[in-house]
Design a protein around this nucleic acid. Structure first.
Lengths: 117, 117
DNA sequence: AGCACCTGCCAATAATCATTTGCGGGTAGC
DNA sequence: GCTACCCGCAAATGATTATTGGCAGGTGCT
């Protein structure tokens, strides 16, 4: 994941630019955790955490696996995906040239139609 | 500008995570420009550009100088400030630990640095 | 059965942001 | 005076987002 398109970069940065998500990432950087435990740990509701995890996942920053605990419960374990982004005026300028969205600005909804499963 | 606090990082990332701002940065990376020209160049209104420039400036990504053109007009020239951010799970996790805002998430409103009590 | 724990999703509300439009001021030149 | 260019700001609107709370399903234990 060396070169990201402008749109992807926007998504990653927007995803990272959030205290909650930063904390989630920090928590996960110490190892995998399952949703409920993580929510308790961070002191936020599960619903809220889910949303943030989903965004982090969509940005490709974390990934998850659904596993069955020994006592039969379904647990979803999340973990951070390694990444390294170098941000400089040049890298940003380069990414800007690949932006597709030429009008909207906000957190872009993005993406052109993609089935995105 | 090696180490940024979590809050500062959030601000920088949030500022960078915008197509408009990315383009502005790209445009400025080729040299200084004054507001009106830049607006025409990017095809956006001056008012809008001002807002984005202000955010970029607040995040420390660009700086400006008001100069007098030979024909007496006041022109505000903007230029990019050099910066280099390395984003990795570790750097983000480290920044997360310095976050002051422990509840809010969205685009930060500015830290309520508790004046203590 | 009832309780405790896990997961996922949706509707509603509050809070925030992005963008437009209009106005104010200033200098130079026809 | 009027027009063209520069700058800045603020109120209003529309569009998104963040967050909550409730409800759904599942397993295992007492």
């Amino acid at each position: 994941m060396a070169e990201l398109t402008g749109d992807e970069l926007v998504r990653v940065l927007a995803t990272l630019a959030s205290p909650h998500r930063m904390r989630v990432l920090a928590a996960l950087s110490t190892g995998r955790h399952y949703v409920s435990a993580l929510a308790r740990d961070l002191g936020i509701s599960r619903a809220l955490l889910q949303v943030h995890l989903k965004k982090l996942e969509r940005a490709g920053l974390v990934s998850a696996e659904l596993e069955l605990s020994e006592d039969g419960k379904a647990m979803k374990y999340y973990q951070v995906n390694a990444f390294a982004l170098q941000l400089t005026p040049q890298s940003v300028a380069a990414a800007a040239k690949t932006l597709t969205n030429d009008a909207a600005d906000g957190p872009d909804r993005g993406a052109q139609q993609n089935g995105d499963s």
